[in-house]
Nucleic acid binder design. Structure first.
Lengths: 195, 195
DNA sequence: TTGTGAGTATACCGACCGGTGTGTTTACCT
DNA sequence: AGGTAAACACACCGGTCGGTATACTCACAA
């Protein structure tokens, strides 16, 4: 575990993380062995364990990285607008784009939460934190609109957001994000917001 | 695979299925080995393979059984009401009760979908079918209310339903079902339904 | 009474799992 | 020229995976 948070990854470590992220996401964390990761990254297992220390840590790095990428994307989309209503609607547009681009296997955090049943696994915390952060984002945005009961509105939007991912991925609702966006508008109006 | 759909399970097979269902749900399908299932059921592996043929089939039996239990529960709650609006709201009450009682690890179908990455695994179909059935239920109930655009309303309610499960389980929204129920009422009114 | 189905016990299979140890090569920095 | 970090190759560890084989006991029913 020579790898700390600040100093950058070595080239091989970066390759390992990229490959592992792809494999863990598309085939599942428990299904993918370290030997396969090493092979696909053109690296020996030794190198992986020298850089990451354990599979658990590699999994955490994968989840953190993916969380960060999504969060950066979402934040940039939200901050592109001033009006709080537009900011809320932008989250659903961002979700739709993201799902079209790189979510063909559903939410990585929800999947990891399902796979990592051991309550001690630090990967669970990463997933929980991501969801809590999303909830708080919606609660803050709801408050900015001056809605009546912004807490309930924020929670509702967060649930709609999560439901759109499952709806798109498992249920097969093709336009899930757009439908959720429309619903968000209706919910805003129901909470006394001009939308 | 002597076990077909109609003839009842032998006592040992019933025990195996019960134990496997509990273990698969709480610890995850890939995490639980057949040896553990055998041990916990007080049965030898031989017996399991004589009755179920393979782990894959045991997993499918688990998913089907759980799906059936949930579906029976939900259906009974819906059919207890005449008014379509009451029927819709009843689904969220049912969900809340179910989650309090036996959903401390989230939706078994969504979890299985995350774990079973092999697209050929028949367990995936069970999960997909359950989600599609839920979507169709909401679409039919929405149509019964005479709502404008019952398709979109139904899809929205289905997503809200799924989001409540994730919200409750991962995000930690304690009253997720109640919040979703309130949101469903608002969405109904937004679609021109008296609710 | 003689099968037959259900279940038991135990040993085994090849494959793979996460992880470690030893020693070597490469490349850059001073 | 010497030092150091990174990556290499390769062999190995104990343990578990899903699944199979053999042989035995028991209850019940024709």
């Amino acid at each position: 575990m020579r790898t700390t948070e600040r100093n950058p990854l070595t080239p091989a470590a970066r390759r390992v993380l990229a490959v592992a992220s792809e494999l863990f996401y598309t085939r599942g964390i428990n299904t993918v062995g370290m030997e396969l990761v090493a092979e696909e990254a053109g690296v020996t297992k030794k190198t992986i364990y020298d850089r990451f220390g354990s599979k658990q840590r590699l999994v955490v790095a994968y989840l953190r990285g993916r969380d960060e990428r999504w969060n950066d994307f979402l934040t940039s989309r939200v901050e592109a607008h001033e009006d709080p209503v537009a900011r809320i609607l932008a989250t659903f547009d961002a979700l739709g784009e993201w799902m079209d681009r790189e979510n063909e296997r559903g939410c990585a955090m929800v999947n990891a939460y399902a796979e990592l049943s051991d309550p001690e696994h630090p990967g669970r915390t990463v997933a929980e934190e991501q969801k809590v952060r999303l909830r708080e984002l919606y609660r803050e945005l709801a408050a900015e609109t001056g809605a009546t009961d912004p807490g309930a509105l924020g929670d509702t939007l967060a649930m709609l957001h999560e439901g759109a991912v499952v709806g798109r991925n498992v249920t097969g609702i093709a336009d899930a994000a757009a439908t959720a966006r429309n619903a968000a508008g209706a919910l805003l109006r129901a909470h006394g917001v001009d939308a």
